[in-house]
Amino acid sequence: MECHCQKGMHIFEDHFIPEIINPESGEVLPYGELGELVFTPATKEAMPLIRYRTRDLTRLHAEPCECGRTLVRMEKCVGRSDDMLIIRGVNVFPSQVESVLLEMSETRPHYLLVVDRENNLDTLEIRVEIEEQFFSDEVKELEGLRKRIKANIASTLGISATIRLVEPGTIERSMGKAQRVIDNRRRL
């Protein structure tokens, strides 16, 4: 649960042992590092679990909170480990792309990531729908928008991506979990 300081959720360590692991190797990571949250319930008797994998990606912080509680705190989840893509060795989450598009006033989070491999190098293309109210009939304006998206993506993800502007409504909407990624590398 979260205290009034809003510095993350306190985890009741009397009952649960939280740990952060590397979702690939399973190795336990130190406090403060980003990885997958796993829980081991300490008091549950009927159905014991050991390092139950939540698939949530977050960080744990051990320093006592300003509210005085000494329980470990978890940050807001940045994504799900099963959504994670590794592109050119960098961990990329679709949720990061979503947050970039949400922060920009000219874009809405309708996007599709297309990952491919060319000449043994991973490539990332991000298709972003154009918003009619921000559609300009001048190439320089649209190219300016494309470059701004590209720059924001590069600073958030740490890798560069090709940005392709597409017509509104052409990216599939789904009611449940949206299909946001096409990874063509798996076919190779």
Partner: peptide, 11 residues
């Protein structure tokens, strides 16, 4: 055209 899903602008 808008109803057909195109992004349209009058300039």
């Amino acid at each position: 055209l808008r109803k057909a899903g195109f992004a349209v602008k009058i300039t």
